[in-house]
Amino acid sequence: MSLGDFLELAYYLSILTFYLGVLIYALPIPITGLKRWGPRLISDAFFVASLTFGFYAILNAANYIAQVLGSDWVRYFGFLNAQLTAQLSMIFGLSALTKFVPPKFAPIISKLISSLVGKLMWAVYATMFMYIIGFVIYKDYTLFASLGIALMAIPFRIARGAGAFLLAFSLVFFVALPLYPAFFSMIVVPPKPNVEIYEPYQQGVRHYEHSSPILDLAIPHPLRTMLRMQIPVSQPPNGFTKLLSTIARVVYAVLLASVLYLTLLLSISVGLARALGGFGRLRVL
């Protein structure tokens, strides 16, 4: 079924909901719980009809918000492509390392490398998931939104929660998913306005220094150096540890950023779905 089919279905379902509401209104059975469904169904029908007819207005509004926020699908897919390429080249590079190792150490090294490749695969899975979800949303978000409205239009609020969530999910992800590269860079490279990394004073020790403009202006240089707070950070002892830390950083940055961002977007979707009137329970009497 296409977008137009879903919208037409939603429209006719809203009319059916309306007449069912009228039918319940006109029933000669004076049960309050049953009669309460009359106005409820009528207002539901008007709401869904407004959503159906205002579908393109909603899409235009979402598009407008996306433009204002600066979301760019080309950039999103380019970013994920670059990430995937980097991760896969790391995996291939690590796999190729085993061929250069002397046969005596080969079993140990290959075990270690397969463990590292396993960790890196998690990052590849996360990136692939982001890619697939982005592709699906980019291609078919209008279809999901119209299906959501059609589900909301089913009488007696049977699939109202699911429909509202689907509509909210497609809109929120269409607007906010392309902002993932900005979120990723914010998570991985946090802004450091007042902290500078200085060259080491001594061999093997690095200092983080908190500098403030007032301190810099008022106090002469030698005294300033003594007053600055120094946090020694041990340097990686060799290249292998550096490699390990780089891989760990890649894996955890990708996993953390993708999980955090998807959770954030899903929370916003749930909130929007609630605002659209979702998650109402079916109460017959």
Partner: peptide, 10 residues
């Protein structure tokens, strides 16, 4: 009253 409201909405 309900009947009248129903007829009105139809």
């Amino acid at each position: 009253e309900d009947a009248v409201w129903g007829a009105f909405w139809i």
